[in-house]
């Protein structure tokens, strides 16, 4: 049993696919936002895997850094979406 870049990319693409599916398929729009965390998790796994298994070791921390930034951006978008939907629906 071994973990490789292929495993990371397959897992990341599957989780991102679930998130994109939820974002595009779920209606109403408020329920579609559950896809945002899945997209961030999938992208984070892909970036961390690329950082872990990359051959060129000139810049080994960039993938981890991008994974952390993607998670922060997903949280910011979720906060904005929740505030927008709740405020818009209560008017």
């Amino acid at each position: 049993m071994n973990v490789s870049l292929v495993s990371c990319l397959v897992l990341g693409s599957a989780v991102t696919g679930c998130g994109v599916f939820a974002l595009l398929w779920r209606r109403p729009l408020t329920e579609a936002f559950v896809g945002l965390p899945a997209i961030a998790a999938g992208l984070g796994i892909c970036l961390a895997g690329a950082s872990r298994f990359a051959t060129l070791r000139q810049d080994p921390d960039t993938g981890q850094e991008m994974a952390a930034l993607v998670a922060l951006v997903a949280l910011a978008w979720t906060m904005l979406a929740v505030g927008w939907t709740v405020r818009g629906n209560s008017r």
């Binding site: 961030a40 961390a48 981890q64 850094e65 952390a68 997903a74 949280l75």
Partner: peptide
């Protein structure tokens, strides 16, 4: 994948 700091940030952000 040896990225524990990024994992902590991800856990806090996605949990929130």
């Amino acid at each position: 994948l040896s990225a524990v700091f990024a994992a902590l940030v991800t856990l806090v952000c996605l949990g929130g």
